[in-house]
């Protein structure tokens, strides 16, 4: 079972990298300007009170000692308490994470799916009007500046036309009446629509372009001529012989962007007041909330590392030439 050995080795590798990242993160935050208490203290606080606060947070100890305490706690599953919220970091993360996963997994998968479909068509009809239209649209979508586009879509569809709510995830006035699951779901989709559309449009272009260029490469391969020589239908050549090979690089891209979507959507989450990890991350960093910020970054690191492994395994599944 070479695959098991491969996974085992990979997991060890990932663990080592993870702890290196953890170490770097820990000291990076200690080196960053400002102190965590600056956002908590009142100008009326005496120096003694301030020192007491620092002591309570454990920040008076030498950095190395702090590091080992953190390491020990981390290994026992304790991520510490948020300086700002005063709540366990794990609790905050678990609260925010589902929202981020919901929004970004949906948008990434949707964008990848549509991008692959359209990229396939664009490559197949290379040089036609459809191809030109799709490629140019994809380029525009790919180069859009996220906050600008998000604000524009929010202003127009949320404010000017008023079809969609300006932010949040749910309407309390609907949920308080304890409606059916369907109504709840509808309300969620209603709230999710604008951020989802924003993320979809930003990402669909890059998947389309990636698929298109990959597909154009595959269409030059000899086995496409073989498939034609067999008299196969265009659809069969396009979908079975070309697209399956062409989609391989897209998988890598999807896997990695799923990982990065945890934080990559910080701006989108901020604009649509979506209570996810990205927003928390910005908040934690700007408030020097060390435990929370570290945990957010570690989460990203962990997801990226694991996603990489999954992409590797998925590749082996999709491409029989790859074995581990």
């Amino acid at each position: 079972m070479r695959i098991k050995k491969y996974i085992f080795n990979k997991v060890i590798e990932i663990t080592i990298i993870f702890f290196i990242i953890l170490t770097i993160l820990f000291f990076l935050f200690r080196l960053s300007p400002g102190t965590p208490i600056s956002k908590m203290v009142d100008p009326t606080f005496t120096l003694e009170d301030q020192n007491l606060l620092i002591e309570q947070l454990g920040l008076d100890k030498p950095a190395l000692e702090q590091y080992f305490i953190y390491l020990k706690n981390f290994c026992t599953g304790n991520l510490g308490f948020s300086f700002h919220y005063g709540e366990p970091v794990s609790k905050i993360i678990l609260e925010r994470l589902p929202w981020t996963i919901l929004l970004f997994t949906t948008s990434t998968i949707l964008a990848a799916f549509v991008g692959v479909m359209l990229g396939k068509i664009a490559a197949w009809k290379k040089g036609s009007a459809i191809d030109n239209f799709l490629s140019i649209s994809a380029l525009i979508s790919h180069t859009l500046f996220i906050p600008w586009f998000a604000l524009l879509i929010l202003w127009f569809l949320g404010f000017k036309v008023g079809w969609f709510p300006l932010g949040g995830t749910l309407s309390p006035e609907i949920w308080i009446t304890e409606p059916s699951l369907f109504v709840k779901l509808l309300d969620l989709i209603h709230h999710m629509f604008l951020p989802l559309m924003t993320l979809f449009f930003i990402h669909v272009g890059s998947y389309l372009l990636l698929m298109r260029s990959s597909m154009l490469g595959v269409l030059k391969e000899d086995y496409i001529i073989t498939a034609k020589a067999k008299g196969l239908t265009e659809k069969s050549i396009r979908n079975k012989h070309a697209a399956k090979n062409a989609a391989l690089p897209v998988i890598t891209s999807v896997g990695l962007s799923l990982a990065f979507s945890i934080n990559g959507g910080a701006l989108t989450e901020q604009i649509f007041t979506w209570p996810g990890i990205g927003r928390e991350l910005i908040f934690a960093v700007s408030n020097n909330d060390y435990p929370l910020a570290q945990a957010c970054f570690l989460l990203i690191a962990g997801v990226v590392l694991v996603a990489n492994l999954i992409v590797d395994l998925l590749y082996a599944y999709m491409d029989p030439r790859i074995t581990y």
């Binding site: 000899d222 086995y223 073989t226 498939a227 399956k244 030439r321």
Partner: peptide, 16 residues
């Protein structure tokens, strides 16, 4: 009419 291609080329689809 059918054709026999050179096998040294990628005449067969690698993932099927």
């Amino acid at each position: 009419i059918s054709m026999i291609f050179q096998a040294a080329m990628n005449a067969m689809n690698p993932v099927i």
